[in-house]
Simulated scan of single mutants.
Amino acid sequence: MIKIITESKDRVSDEVIEYLLAKGVSFKRINSDIFSSFSETISKADYVNGEIIWHRRAFRRLNPSEIQKYPFIYNLLDEEDVVNKFIEKKNCFKNTIYYGGYVEESQHNKLYDLYLANKFGLKVPSTLITNVKSELKAFKQIHNKIITKPIKDLIRFRSENYIYSSPGTFLIEEKHFNLLEEHFAISIFQEYIEKDIEIRVFYFDGFFFSMAIFSQNDEKTKIDFRNYNFEKQNRFIPFKLDKVIKKKIKKFLKYKKINTCSIDLILTPENEFVFLEINPQGQFGWLSKNCNYFIEKFIAQKLIFDNERISK
């Protein structure tokens, strides 16, 4: 049986399912944003059965929506989190082929990823994590041009009429130092690395789908292509990753026990690859469309192949 854990509005999941329907393959879709009933018995009678699970997005919603308004909801969400992690770990232990997952996404640590990537031979930007102004000044004196960005996610909050969001990646200038006390909120800072192109990679079970992003042609996206210019899109083309860099990434992901994710890299004017980050449940639909990779079809075929193999 093929199971797909995703969100009701996830377009790439829809397209993968369209291929499954076209081939007449049975599957079960679990939308994480819709409540689903769940029961599990742990006993000596537990048996091993084969399943193919693609955990595309988020996690299973196990608390009824009515509970969301309760004052103690955060305690219940913590318990829901434990059950979701149990489901995934149990399925990975059984005779199950499991792509993606919730555990790595929920505890994803970009700082540790930088540390590990460096240990596996990938070049990473010199990075400072600090809450001390004097340390930051010393770091800037060494690297001259430095950037900051969220350690985890963008900060967003809603008022009555507006939605506010933090600016993403930006250069640190002298004016920013004037706004800081000697101690401030813990933050991340990195040396700014000149880019020839930015590279977005989608990885699935040993296969790489890579795209070059010509972000340097636009002042708005020059620091980071995710500072999108919606009026004038960057140019995207397919890109073939070097065998050496692919080998290093595979070792890194194998150590982390990740079999699918999105990866951000830089290619410098000196033709060096620099690792920036991975996103365990990162988007890939735009990469697939811009480069005509038909990743959705590839995933569907992989799920079908594995399902037939495990059913024999």
Rank of each mutant, 00 (worst) to 15 (best):
T127Y: 08
T148N: 14
L62A: 07
C92L: 12
N95Q: 05
I30V: 14
N49P: 00
Q68L: 12
S26H: 09
P150I: 12
K94F: 07
I42P: 01
K149R: 13
N63T: 10
I147W: 09
P64V: 09
I147P: 00
K69Q: 14
H143I: 11
N63C: 10
E66K: 15
Q107C: 07
G50A: 14
L21Y: 05
K110P: 08
I87S: 00
K137Y: 09
A58R: 14
I142R: 14
L136F: 03
Y115D: 10
Y99R: 07
P125R: 02
D113K: 05
N144Y: 13
V48I: 13
P125T: 02
S39G: 04
K140A: 09
F120G: 00
S159F: 06
N131K: 12
N49K: 12
T148Y: 02
Y70S: 15
V103L: 06
L76R: 05
E88I: 06
R29P: 05
P150M: 10
L116R: 04
H143E: 12
K90E: 13
H108I: 06
I142H: 12
L136M: 04
L76M: 14
K119I: 06
L111I: 15
S26M: 08
H55Y: 15
I34K: 13
V103R: 04
K89E: 11
L111Q: 10
L20R: 05
T41V: 11
Y47V: 14
S65D: 15
Y74C: 12
K149N: 06
I146A: 00
L62P: 01
K94C: 05
V25N: 05
C92G: 03
W54H: 06
V48Y: 12
S36W: 06
N31H: 09
L136Q: 01
E80L: 00
K110V: 07
N31F: 10
A45F: 09
G100A: 04
H143A: 10
K123E: 08
R56H: 15
F93Y: 12
G100R: 00
L122S: 03
L114V: 08
S26Q: 08
A117Y: 00
I129T: 00
D46A: 13
E40S: 10
K152T: 14
P64I: 12
V132Y: 14
I34A: 05
E105D: 10
L116D: 02
R57H: 01
Y112K: 14
K149F: 02
L114F: 11
D78I: 05
R29K: 15
E135R: 10
K133S: 07
D78S: 11
V82K: 10
P71K: 10
Y70F: 15
K119Y: 07
F35D: 01
E80Q: 01
I155V: 14
D33W: 03
F72P: 01
H108L: 05
